[in-house]
Simulated scan of single mutants.
Amino acid sequence: MTPTRWAVLGPGVISRDFAVGLAASKYGMLHAVGSSSRERAEAFAREHGARAAGTYDEILAREDVDAVYIGTVHTTHADLAIRAVAAGKAVLCEKPASPTLVEVERILAAAARAGRPFLEAFKTRFGPFAQTLRDLAAGGDLGALQHIQAARGSAAKTRTGRVFDPALAGGAILDVGCYPLALAIDLAAAAGQPIDAPQYRRFEAELVAGVDGTASVELGFGAVSATIATSVVESLSDTAVLRFADGEVVLPKVWGSRVESPSSLMVRRRGSERVIEVPTVQPMAAEADALSLALADGRLEVPQMPWAHTLAAARVLTDWREAALAG
Rank of each mutant, 00 (worst) to 15 (best):
P3E: 10
A7K: 11
I14Q: 05
I14W: 07
I14M: 12
S15C: 07
R16M: 10
R16W: 11
A19N: 12
V20R: 14
A32E: 08
A41H: 07
A43T: 15
R51F: 14
A53I: 06
T55R: 09
D57C: 03
I59R: 03
L60S: 10
E63V: 13
D64S: 14
A67H: 09
A67Q: 07
H77M: 00
A78H: 13
D79L: 14
A81W: 07
R83Y: 09
A84K: 05
V91A: 05
C93I: 06
C93Y: 01
S98L: 04
P99C: 10
V104E: 00
E105T: 15
I107W: 03
L108R: 00
A114L: 03
G115T: 14
P117W: 03
F118R: 00
L119A: 11
E120P: 13
A121Q: 03
K123N: 14
G127T: 10
F129V: 02
F129K: 00
Q131M: 07
T132K: 11
L133A: 06
D135H: 12
A138Y: 14
D141G: 13
D141W: 04
L145H: 08
H147D: 08
H147P: 03
R152G: 05
A155N: 05
G170K: 01
G171Y: 12
A172D: 04
D175F: 15
Y179V: 00
L181S: 00
A182H: 11
A188R: 02
P194I: 00
D196W: 04
R202C: 12
E204M: 04
E206A: 15
A209W: 05
T214H: 06
T214E: 12
E218F: 12
F221E: 00
A226Q: 01
A229Y: 04
T230Y: 12
S231F: 02
V232S: 07
V232Y: 06
E234I: 02
S235F: 09
L236W: 08
D238N: 14
D238R: 13
T239L: 04
F244E: 04
A245F: 11
G247V: 03
P252A: 08
K253R: 06
V259N: 08
R269V: 12
I276G: 04
V278H: 10
T280S: 14
A285Y: 01
A286K: 11
E287G: 12
D289P: 14
L295M: 09
M305C: 11
W307F: 13
W307Q: 07
W307P: 02
W307R: 02
A308H: 07
H309N: 09
D319V: 09
R321C: 04
E322I: 04
L325R: 05
A326H: 14
